[in-house]
Each structure stands twice: as C-alpha cells, then as structure tokens.
Design a protein around this nucleic acid. Structure first.
Length: 353
DNA sequence: AATACGGGGGG
DNA sequence: CCCCCAGTATT
C-alpha cells in the first residue's frame, strides 16, 4: 500500500480504514440506534464538544425528550436547563427552533435533502452531511476538525483548512474515497480515526490503519498539520459575584448585560472597576448591602476571556424581587435542574456547600 | 472573510 | 498554569 498513489479514488485507504473502524469503534449511545432525531441531537451536542462530555447530556436529553414532538413542545428554559454546563447555549436555542421547523415544514421528519437540512436552524455544512450520511446513508462527506486533521496529514497539506477553498478541496478528496453504500461508516471512521489515533498532539501513528499511505507519518512531522492560523489572544476579566442568602435560597439574576451566558441564571455579577457587586445591587435592589467574607477566587474561561471571579458574601437589607423579572430566589439544587445555568454558576455553587 | 460563542482535558 | 481544540450564525 505504501507505493499506492493518493488520488480521488483510493480504495486501499478506505478498506483499511473501514476494517479498522469495524474492529475499534467506540460503543456510543447514538450509534446503537442511529435514527435521524437521535443523530441530530448527538451531532448538535458534539459540535465543539468531546464525546465523553456529551454522553450524559445526550442520555438525559433523550430521556426527557424521547421524540422530536416532545422537544418541539418544550420551553426554551427547559431545553437550556438540560444544556446547563454543556456550553455554546445558542446550540440549544437553535435546536429547539430547528425542531419546530421540522415539525412545521417537514412533517416531523428530518429532511433527507442536503439543501433542506441546511435551512434548519443550527444545522450547517458539517451537521447536514453528518446527519444525512449516518441516519440515511446519503453519500455526503463530512469535514469536521478530525477529518481535516486526518486528511491534511495524509496529504501533508499545508493549506489553511479554515479557508473555504481548502475545505472544498478536502471535501472532494473525502468524497472520492467514500466507498459506495458506506457513507455512514466511512464518515464515522474518518472522525473516529481523528479522535482515537490521529490526535492533535502525539498521534499514535504506529497503530494507524492508514499509516503506510500517510505522507506526514512518512515524513515524521504529523504534528505540523493541519497548519492553523494563530488564535485570538486571551483577555483577563475580573468579576465579583454577590452571594445573598435567605434560608436555603440564594438571590439569582438572569444574565442580560454580559456579552456571554445571556439568558442564563446565576449569582449576580459585576465588574470591580465599575464599583463592584455590592454597589451594583444597592442600586438595583434599592436596599442596604453590607460586604462580608470573600471566597476563594474561581477561574473560568469563556472563549477568549479568562475570568477571575471573586465570590463575596453579602448581607442585604429588606427588598422584594417582585416587579424585577431578572431577579429571583433559588435553592442550590435547582441550579441546572430547574433553572438554566452555566458551568461558572455551578462552580460558584460548589464553593457554597 | 473575520469574529464570537463554553468548556474541559492534557502536559 | 498554559495550551489545545472547532461548527454555526452574524456581520
């Protein structure tokens, strides 16, 4: 196989890859019964997110919303609550909107047509190809980060895979290698190889089924591929959280003015450079606020921001949350179970117990 | 074409 | 601790 020419039709690579996949693929919940609805949920959750992280979320989600109709009838808050901690919360909102779209425009069945799939909120080129190939066997090649890595290494291609032209080229290669009738296992095999063997750092080339056809492995520099543009540099952000307790309940606020975690509940936050959380709540709640103990700082990353959050215990005078829809009281156990929250909020709550 | 949206895992 | 990863929607 080492002397074979890599081309738009390389059956050696496909055969070795599929054989490896059959013997080594992981037993994942959505692979057991790959019906469109389940594959759809899994693919949305798997965007930017690891398999191990997704599994428990997927199980809970399917438990609560066994069918597309169940999901389409849900409230956004309930969907977000099940998404709490998973991140990229727009995915949850799009998924709900997408479920309604499929009910309304496709008789409740995820479309089998690529262009129609792309019209569904939250479904882009990758997800459309993934769902159509895995659930319906339609021959659309997927190109996700794993496949980009596998292909640029095999080809030793230094082009930036973020560029549209590179994506187009890589998709053509993948499509050319896809054996007839094997769209589902071929696509999943490419991604599985990227996830288990052809990993970003220290890939297991010795265990790779397509090692002999891989230019980067032969050259000894797989880690140099893909060649990605530099990422945005991180920005440090300081935040204070106010902890106000009444019995078993804490004062919570719905994020509105933050550029992130919008619509999620959490402990009230403020930038220290704008007067701090005590000052802010004094004005918002029109009551007296005394500063108490400061808890150990929490580090949390949100895209390019590196947050340092200092929780501070506060003692408030009397006030009411009536007429203030962005405030409410809630027990710690309700966070992520009844109320949609982020991981940041759960980290703070952990500090309180 | 560029930018922003979360979060967790590995070294 | 820092560095790694990466689909979609928006602009």
């Amino acid at each position: 196989m080492g002397t074979e020419v890599i081309s738009a039709s390389n059956s050696g690579i496909s055969r070795a890859l599929l054989e490896w996949y059959e013997a080594n693929h992981r037993d994942l919940p959505w692979r057991r019964n790959p019906e469109p609805y389940r594959v759809w949920i899994s693919e949305i959750m798997l965007q930017q997110t690891r398999v191990e992280t997704v599994i428990p979320y997927f199980e809970r989600f399917l438990d609560r919303f066994p069918t597309l109709s169940d999901l389409a009838a849900a409230s956004e808050d309930e969907v977000l609550t099940l998404w709490s901690g998973l991140g990229y919360y727009r995915r949850a909102r799009s998924l709900l909107a997408g479920a309604k779209t499929v009910i309304e425009h496709h008789d409740g069945v995820f479309p089998r047509n690529y262009e129609a799939a792309l019209e569904i909120p939250g479904v882009g080129p990758y997800t459309a190809a993934a769902i159509l190939s895995v659930a319906y066997g339609e021959p659309w090649p997927v190109l996700d980060g794993n496949v980009e890595r596998v292909l640029t290494r095999i080809l030793r291609l230094a082009d930036n895979p973020r560029k549209a032209a590179t994506k187009k080229y890589l998709k053509e290669i993948a499509g050319g290698w896809m054996p007839r009738g094997k769209a589902s296992s071929f696509n999943q095999a490419m991604m599985e190889l990227g996830a288990l063997i052809c990993v970003p750092v220290s890939p297991s080339c010795a265990a790779c089924p397509v090692h002999d056809a891989c230019a980067a492995a032969e050259h000894g520099d797989p880690e140099n591929f893909p060649k990605l543009p530099p990422r945005r540099k991180t920005v440090a952000v300081e935040l204070e959280a106010g902890i106000i307790r009444r019995g078993k309940r804490y004062l919570l606020e719905r994020n509105e003015d933050l550029d992130y975690l919008e619509g999620l509940w959490g402990f009230p936050l403020a930038r220290p450079d704008s007067g701090g959380i005590a000052f802010r709540l004094r004005k918002k709640l029109a009551t007296s606020i005394e500063e108490g103990a400061e808890l150990k700082a929490i580090r949390h990353s949100i895209t390019f921001r590196r947050l340092t959050l200092r929780p501070r215990i506060l003692e408030a005078g009397s006030f009411s949350t009536r007429g203030k829809p962005s405030f409410r009281w809630g027990r710690a156990e309700e966070l992520g179970n009844v109320l949609p929250v982020s991981s940041l909020c759960l980290k703070i709550a952990d500090r309180l117990s």
